[in-house]
Amino acid sequence: MREMEAGRVLYYVRRGTVIAIVCAIVAFLIWYPFMKRFDLKTYKKEQEEAKQNANA
């Protein structure tokens, strides 16, 4: 009986691990385009500031 309980616990641990990994991947896929856009916007702003400081 205890062996069956241990097997059941191990099953839920594995299942929880898989669900956590899937959730992390989905969260990254949702977050990535927004962060990429923000990074590009910040990069362009820094380039403009550098150009203005070089001309000053």
Rank of each mutant, 00 (worst) to 15 (best):
R2E: 01
Q52T: 06
Y43K: 02
Q52Y: 04
V9G: 02
N55V: 13
R8D: 04
N53F: 11
A54S: 05
R2M: 06
Y12R: 01
F28N: 11
M4P: 05
N55Y: 10
A54L: 07
A20C: 11
L29F: 03
K45G: 11
E46Q: 11
M1F: 09
A54K: 05
M35R: 15
R2K: 04
Y12F: 10
V18L: 13
Y32S: 08
A50R: 09
R2N: 07
I25E: 02
A27V: 14
R15L: 10
I19G: 04
T17L: 14
I30G: 00
M4G: 12
A20F: 06
M35W: 09
E5W: 05
R8Q: 09
F34E: 00
Y32N: 12
F38L: 15
A50S: 05
E5F: 11
A20L: 03
V18C: 09
A24G: 09
R14I: 05
A54H: 03
R8P: 00
T42Y: 03
F28G: 14
G16E: 04
M1I: 06
R8Y: 05
K41H: 12
L29Q: 00
V26Q: 13
R15H: 10
Y32T: 10
A27T: 10
C23L: 13
T42D: 12
E3F: 04
L40P: 01
K41A: 08
A54F: 02
F38Y: 08
Y32V: 13
I19C: 04
M4D: 15
N53W: 13
F38I: 14
I19S: 02
V9A: 06
F38N: 05
T17F: 14
N55W: 14
K51Y: 08
K51D: 05
V26F: 11
Y43F: 01
A27R: 14
I30V: 01
V18F: 10
N55T: 03
E49C: 03
A24L: 15
E49F: 05
E3P: 01
D39V: 07
K45N: 11
R2L: 12
L29V: 08
